[in-house]
Structures are given as structure tokens and as C-alpha cells.
């Protein structure tokens, strides 16, 4: 049952991913991308990471995609006038497919090493995923976390400067 559910979600994710790169209208691409993000959020839930699923939906599907759709509408971008040259598409697709084959080859041949940590579904159940993430962020990863805030501040300032009327 679970495997079947996984396959359905995976199929939706891949198909909407394909739609992202095939749709001529950027709005359609954006909506397909949101669909993909939801699928990934589903995977997160299946992987015992409910907090990640929540922020996947809130930050990605919510904030970022809304911003992208907003910009698309603001700029009133028409569909692409014509496709790129056939050979570019062909060459790019060939490269992508070849890369995929290589990745799959790695997956098939490579073995997993490393030792398991102490985290399992029971502990997550006991403490709650959010609390675990919070503890990790505010103890072990405090400095990167604070640096992230500076990164965001820089991004805000950069965005304001770039989007100002006259630069």
C-alpha cells in the first residue's frame, strides 16, 4: 500500500517536473512546479520529517512560488515567441539524459557506507520533529544559523537596491 502510494506520488512529481520544462506559458510552468513541491513535501512526511514538509509548503510553495508568479504577472511575460534552435534543445536534452544515466549508474553500482545515528521514528514521535530541529539549530548549528540571518539581510538590501527605479 505504502509502495503504491509512493509510486503514484513519484509519478506525479516527475510528470509535473516535465511539465515545468515543457510548458510554453511560464504561469503553467510555475503551477506545475508548485505541484512538484507538494509531492516533495509528501515525500518528506513519508520520511519522518514533518517540519521539513511544513516549511517546504510554507516557504517554497508559499513564499517563493508566490513571488515568482507575482513577478511573472508583473512583467506580463508572453509565451516564448519561438523555440530555441532544435540543435540546442537536442544537445541540452542529450546532455541531461546522459547525466541521468550516469547518476543511475552510480546508484546501481555504488554502495552505502557510514553508520546509523540514534534517531528513529520512535524518538521523533516522543520529542516532536520541530523540537529536535530547533535544538540542533540553536545549539550545534547556532553560528551558521545566525549567519543565515545576515545572508537574508543582504539579500533584502540587494533586492531593494536592484529593483529601485533608477540604477
Amino acid at each position: 500500500m505504502e509502495t503504491l502510494f509512493f509510486f503514484v506520488v513519484a509519478a506525479v512529481a516527475v510528470i509535473s517536473g516535465l511539465l515545468v520544462i515543457t510548458c510554453k506559458n511560464p504561469i503553467n510552468s510555475a503551477l506545475s512546479l508548485i505541484m512538484t513541491f507538494f509531492c516533495i513535501a509528501t515525500f518528506y512526511v513519508m520520511l519522518n520529517a514533518p517540519f521539513m514538509a511544513a516549511i517546504q509548503v510554507i516557504v517554497y510553495a508559499g513564499a517563493i512560488m508566490v513571488l515568482i508568479v507575482f513577478v511573472i504577472m508583473l512583467l506580463n511575460i508572453r509565451s516564448e515567441a519561438g523555440r530555441r534552435g532544435a540543435h540546442t534543445t537536442l544537445f541540452g536534452s542529450a546532455l541531461g539524459i546522459f547525466g541521468l544515466i550516469e547518476l543511475l549508474y552510480f546508484l546501481a553500482k555504488g554502495g552505502l557506507t557510514g553508520s546509523r545515528g540514534g534517531l528513529d521514528a520512535k524518538i521523533i514521535e516522543q520529542f516532536g520533529h520541530t523540537e529536535l530541529i530547533g535544538r540542533a539549530l540553536f545549539t550545534q548549528f547556532l553560528l551558521p544559523f545566525e549567519i543565515t540571518s545576515i545572508l537574508l539581510l543582504v539579500a533584502i538590501i540587494g533586492a531593494v537596491i536592484l529593483a529601485k527605479k533608477n540604477i
Binding site: 544537445f91 541540452g92 546532455l95 546522459f98 547525466g99 550516469e102 547518476l103 549508474y105 552510480f106
Partner: peptide
């Protein structure tokens, strides 16, 4: 930009192929 992106992707693929 595209040509550069394409070249970069080609490079990644070739390096991966080399490792394989």
C-alpha cells in the same frame, strides 16, 4: 549565458563519465 551553462554541464557530465 546559455553557451556557458551548456559547457559547464558538459564538463560535469564528462568528469562524471571519467570517474565511472
Amino acid at each position: 549565458v546559455h553557451n556557458y551553462a551548456m559547457t559547464m554541464a558538459l564538463g560535469v557530465v564528462v568528469i562524471l563519465a571519467f570517474y565511472i
